Amino acid sequence: MTTYRGSCHCGACRFEVDTDLDHVRSCNCSVCRRRGALIHRVPESALRMLTPLEDLTVYEWHSRTARDYFCPRCGIMPFRIPSAPTAQETAQGKLPFAGWAINARCLEGVDLASIPVRLVNGADLS
């Protein structure tokens, strides 16, 4: 387990996360493909906010079950709460995830080219 420090571009949003960064996810849904974030999920207890969540801007869309946290100054999304499984995903046996999705592009000292990328076909979920 490694502790990573992370931040938005301007540094107004800072955090630490404990994880084994063994992969990242790249989703092709309408928001994610525009955003370009590389996501790694961690349990709720693995993320420590060094900036109060209240200082960030929240974006909710579609099912309104996900919460994307953005820096109000520079607009970068360092982390999010993933959406609840859709009816289609639940029917396929997917369980809800209780934790955080960290944008690995916001972590310091990470060689993203060395981390396997798992593709998520979010565009086909309704």
Rank of each mutant, 00 (worst) to 15 (best):
S63W: 11
D68G: 10
Y4E: 07
R80C: 15
L38D: 02
V17K: 01
G109N: 11
F15H: 04
C27L: 04
G11L: 13
F97N: 06
F79A: 14
D20E: 11
A123Y: 00
Q92C: 10
R25S: 05
H23G: 07
A123V: 00
A98T: 13
I81E: 08
C27K: 10
L50E: 08
P43V: 15
F79H: 07
I76K: 03
V58L: 06
R80M: 07
L107K: 01
V110L: 01
L21S: 02
L95I: 09
P72E: 04
G122S: 04
P43K: 15
R41A: 14
R48K: 11
T51P: 05
R33K: 15
A87H: 08
A98F: 14
T65E: 06
A91G: 03
A84Q: 10
C10N: 01
H40I: 03
S30D: 06
V58I: 06
T90L: 08
I115A: 01
V117M: 02
H9A: 05
P72F: 05
A12S: 14
A123P: 00
L125K: 00
C106R: 05
T65K: 02
R73S: 12
L50W: 09
T3M: 12
L53R: 06
A104P: 14
R73M: 12
Q88D: 13
F79T: 12
G109Y: 03
C106V: 02
G11Y: 06
D68Y: 11
F97T: 08
L53A: 13
D55K: 11
T19N: 07
A101R: 12
A101N: 15
R25P: 00
D124K: 00
T65D: 06
R5K: 13
A37C: 11
C74H: 07
Q88S: 09
N103D: 14
V42F: 01
R5G: 15
L56R: 10
